[in-house]
Simulated scan of single mutants.
Amino acid sequence: MPRQLKVMMLFSLSFGVLFTVLAYFSVQEYGFSFWTYFIIAVAAYDFFKVYQILALARKVKKEGTDKSA
């Protein structure tokens, strides 16, 4: 996996975990509110970006092995 993809993946993954923890504490403190749902949506978006990056890296790796074979 190229270095740029690793950095993007770690960045999105760390923010996804951070927003998940923030949502957890928000639910514990205030219950479900608009801001809690907003934080959950941001965390889900970050985890989706990680999934997209991993899928792209897998595709690039597959295309690289197909061309060399």
Rank of each mutant, 00 (worst) to 15 (best):
S68R: 15
V17R: 08
G16M: 02
F11C: 06
Y45H: 12
V42M: 03
F25L: 06
M8H: 09
V21D: 03
K59S: 11
A55T: 14
A44H: 03
A44K: 05
L22R: 02
L56K: 12
L10Y: 12
Y37Q: 13
L18A: 04
Y30P: 00
Y45V: 12
S68N: 15
T20M: 06
R3E: 10
A23T: 00
A43T: 01
T36Q: 04
Q52V: 10
F47T: 03
M1C: 12
F32S: 07
Q4T: 08
F32L: 14
M1S: 11
V7M: 15
T20Q: 07
Y24G: 00
F47W: 11
Y24V: 02
L56I: 10
F47H: 10
Y24F: 09
T65L: 08
S33P: 05
A57Q: 14
S12R: 05
L54Y: 15
F48A: 13
K62E: 06
L54H: 15
A55L: 15
S14Y: 08
F34R: 10
I39F: 03
L56D: 09
A23H: 01
V42L: 09
V27Q: 02
Q52N: 13
M1W: 15
V17Q: 05
F48Y: 15
Y37V: 07
E29H: 10
D46L: 06
Y51K: 15
L56S: 08
I53G: 01
F48H: 14
D46G: 02
A44C: 08
K49Y: 13
M1V: 13
M1G: 11
Q28T: 04
F32Q: 09
L10A: 10
Y30H: 07
P2R: 14
F25C: 02
I40P: 00
A23E: 00
